[in-house]
Design a protein around this nucleic acid. Structure first.
Lengths: 117, 117
DNA sequence: TAGATACTGAACTAGATGGTTCAGTATCTA
DNA sequence: TAGATACTGAACCATCTAGTTCAGTATCTA
């Protein structure tokens, strides 16, 4: 996609664009889990779940650690701060835009209704 | 991806996962724009830009209207409310999780340091 | 130490994505 | 009314995605 600014946001929003992965984050919020237990919970092959975990891990949303034969997944410490900030800044931008439009409409109505002349 | 819950979040997070599309939202925050002007600004073919706009439109983040031969793009009224809510709820979930871990670590240190016996 | 369990990696699939070009059609403007 | 402008749509391409199966390897457990 040419523009290489903010690769982390690219990765994390892409990670969040899938309902299964959002579900995994939900689940890890309730407690750490192995890949096998997550695969069971989401009715998917181990390999399929591993791929989802890799996507979340590349985005920094999840970290994993292998102890013995079990790889345990938990929420990443970096959290969703950057994403929350982007969304919040732009939510305000949306609102400001509509406030500006309301202003214009109000202006047009005032002129149209001929109240002031 | 099997799980059909919350398609809107799927679509909007996917729309936001591309730097060009986030740039388009930035731009539309500063004022409405035609597809041609956006294509110029982002150095892309008209057709390429049209596809990005379609992605944003399907996600409800942008609305367009054709007047004469010009299609004007503006920010959608639905804003980023649902996305902000999901992110905020889960940001808290991340934090709660780490608070719980801190608690455990503090507990372990207390037992380990043998201060209390 | 044999068998079960937990993961890993390669290979394959169908379908989406982010772009392009090229050939229209519709609308404006001189 | 001719030419320029603004978009639209089809077709193509390379790459990614979300899944699968199958064949390992490593680690536990009886």
């Amino acid at each position: 996609m040419v523009q290489y600014l903010s690769p982390p946001l690219d990765l994390s929003f892409a990670a969040l664009s899938d309902a299964t992965r959002r579900g995994i984050i939900d689940q890890l919020g309730r407690g750490d889990a192995s890949i096998t237990s997550l695969a069971d919970k989401f009715q998917m092959t181990l390999t399929g779940m591993k791929k989802h975990i890799q996507v979340l891990e590349r985005a920094g949303l999840v970290v994993t650690q292998k102890v013995g034969r079990v790889r345990t997944c938990k929420l990443g410490k970096r959290g969703l701060k950057a994403e929350a900030e982007w969304i919040e800044a732009h939510r305000k931008l949306f609102e400001a835009r509509f406030k500006a439009l309301d202003e214009i409409i109000r202006e047009m109505k005032r002129e149209g209704s001929d109240d002031s002349s």
